[in-house]
């Protein structure tokens, strides 16, 4: 416990910045490299790092297993739901140009929504996968 002081303090310091970087990758994906997939994996990486350093109980306080398992299908629903909304508004499936007052902003909004869906599913799946492996070993 006391021998890994540097790892514990170091991890505690960088955990919030990893999550911040994930959010940056997510919301800056319009202008720079990255997007929902990369951001989701980085966010899941934060939970995994917390689990490795502080144990599974700490990780489960950050990301409760029930929430994580809920996120796995939720992201796909957000993504497909965006497409269905476009469908209901009289356009093709996943044609975002009707989601706002003018087509360019609407498509930007559509991209934002589906990227959010990807983030939710990817971060949920990666974390749930890790939980499944670790719980199996107990």
């Amino acid at each position: 416990m006391s021998l890994d002081l540097i790892i514990r303090v170091g991890t505690k310091l960088i955990l919030p910045f990893i999550l911040l970087f994930a959010l940056y990758v997510q919301f800056h994906g319009d202008f720079g490299p990255g997007g929902g997939f990369q951001a989701g994996v980085i966010a899941a990486g934060m939970v995994i790092l917390a689990a490795i350093t502080f144990g599974m109980d700490a990780a489960k306080r950050i990301a409760p297993p029930r929430l994580v398992e809920f996120m796995v299908p939720l992201g796909v629903l957000i993504y497909a739901g965006t497409g269905v909304v476009a469908l209901l508004m009289g356009r093709n499936f996943l044609d975002y140009s009707v989601l706002g007052h003018d087509p360019v902003h609407a498509r930007e909004l559509g991209i934002f929504l589906v990227e959010a869906g990807v983030l939710v599913t990817v971060s949920g799946t990666m974390t749930a996968l890790f939980y499944a492996f670790v719980e199996r070993g107990r």
Binding site: D30, F31, G32, G35, F37, Y79, L94, E108, T121
Partner: peptide, 24 residues
Amino acid sequence: ETGVANVVTSVLADYRGYDTLGET
């Protein structure tokens, strides 16, 4: 057309939205 400067993002999430839905 999309207001998104990163073409990778606009292709993935808009022009090729079906493919990314499949990936997800």
